[in-house]
């Protein structure tokens, strides 16, 4: 019995390692804001930069989703529904992870870091503060890259879209990444048996921030002063 138990655990570590290393390998490249030096430094420029960045990152994130084990086996409408629900959570989680080593700043891109003062000038202060709350939470926990990529996959598969056709297939995908996280924590943080749960319990805050962000950018869209690319607009409209 002890041998069997050991073998099962080893097998599960191998399975976990496979999913986690697959997710690590699928991580998109770094993004750069490359903001236009010809534009005056005002709120419109900042928001234009953010919207352009978000649009380019969305393309990368869709490519990333396609690498998720099992995602491409879902029906195309279900793939769309998951992304339409979780796209902002994925964008925010990436900003949060990039910002873990920054001091009270959000690293929107390698070359685009925003502090509270700049956020205030852009009308983003509330959102900035909310995202920093999540940054502080993960920093206190010492969030690792492996955990970040797995959480991102959980956020995608846990999008709670009301229009999923094949709920069992989406649930199967979610179970796979959830199990990978649990196995990772068992093998790397065995001294904290509640760590996987603690990480999953951060997802409601992520969803709350994401809803705020969508609401904010919808108002920016309605205002009509900031140019937005089509993919970003499509997804804003999906919410």
């Amino acid at each position: 019995l002890p041998q069997m138990h050991k073998r099962t655990r080893t097998e599960s570590y191998i399975a976990e390692n496979k999913v986690v290393s697959h997710l690590l390998g699928a991580e998109p490249e770094k993004v750069y804001a490359m903001h236009d030096p010809a534009l005056p430094d005002d709120d419109i420029k900042a928001l234009t930069t953010l919207c352009d960045l978000a649009d380019r990152e969305l393309v990368l994130n869709i490519g990333w989703a396609k690498h998720l084990p099992g995602f491409s086996s879902l029906s195309l409408p279900d793939q769309m529904r998951l992304l339409q629900s979780a796209w902002m959570e994925i964008l925010i989680l990436r900003v949060v992870f990039r910002s873990l080593d920054a001091q009270d700043c959000l690293v929107f891109a390698e070359d685009y870091v925003m502090d509270a003062e700049q956020a205030k000038q852009t009308g983003l202060l509330e959102l900035h503060g909310a995202i920093l709350q999540l940054v502080r939470k993960y920093r206190a926990m010492g969030l690792e890259r492996e955990e970040f990529v797995t959480l991102k996959a959980i956020a995608l598969t846990n999008s709670d879209s009301m229009h999923i056709e094949d709920i069992d297939a989406v649930q199967g995908l979610q179970d796979c990444v959830h199990e990978a996280l649990q196995d990772y924590e068992r093998s790397h943080h065995g001294n904290d048996p509640r760590r996987a749960g603690k990480l999953i319990m951060t997802l409601p805050l992520l969803r709350q921030i994401s809803a705020k962000a969508v609401q904010y950018f919808c108002s920016v869209k309605q205002d009509g002063r900031v140019p937005m690319h089509k993919l970003f607009l499509e997804l804003l409209e999906a919410n």
Binding site: P28, V59, L60, I62, G63, W64, K66, H67, L76, P77, Q79, M80, L83, Q84, K230, L231, E234, L235, E237, A238
Partner: peptide, 19 residues
């Protein structure tokens, strides 16, 4: 799908990461 043409196209595109 009609309202989400770009998302649809990117998901259908056989290359995994480029738009």
């Amino acid at each position: 799908t009609e309202r989400h043409k770009i998302l649809h196209r990117l998901l259908q595109d056989s290359s995994p990461a480029d738009g």
